[in-house]
Design a protein around this nucleic acid. Structure first.
Lengths: 91, 91
DNA sequence: TAAAAATACTCCATAGGTATTTTAT
DNA sequence: ATAAAATACCTATGGAGTATTTTTA
């Protein structure tokens, strides 16, 4: 099942088109960002980025582009769920 | 951040109104289902179930009812994301 | 006393880190 | 030479289990 934290990392990587910069921005190690994206790709059964191996620029695959829209949607919904539920007594 | 697997367990518990039966249905241990729900409650900062302690019936709190709608929505979206992305070449 | 949730542990998978390697630029 | 992604390896957190306890019906 998808990991929302990893989806969030995916958004940053897609925005910056750079694993290392995304790692710095998010306070993760570069290798961990690589792993998070690999986990997503394995979970989805599709590559998210087209990487000329060791190239300095990465690009979304078409699967990546599709996933980007779902990732934004899922994360927005997660935030709404949080704010809708949090801090209320619940009785 | 919310754990989608735990949300899925939450749906089953809410449907059956019984942790033990939900555990059996899902192939988890009873104690693990308790833990999953506790994790969700901690993450959300709200109780999801009104449990007369050790009573034989549990009921959703109002926060739980709100969360139930979001959980269904999030999980449906997760499935759509999967099916939209999986099995395509991605190029 | 039976059924059900909580609790106390134990174990292991995996998320995360550091260091290094590989490869284009 | 440098920047960047991948890889190897290690550690720690937390997800999951078993066994037990607590409590109500």
């Amino acid at each position: 099942m998808l990991n929302l934290q990893h989806l969030s990392t995916f958004l940053t990587v897609a925005a910056l088109k750079n694993f290392s910069q995304a790692a710095t921005r998010l306070g993760y190690s570069q290798s961990n960002v690589t792993t998070q994206i690999k986990n997503l790709e394995k979970e989805l059964g599709a590559e998210l980025f087209e990487r000329e191996r060791f190239s300095r620029s990465i690009a979304l695959t078409s699967a990546g582009k599709r996933m980007l829209r779902y990732a934004r949607w899922l994360l927005a919904l997660e935030r709404k769920a949080h704010s809708s539920v949090r801090g209320r007594t619940g009785g």
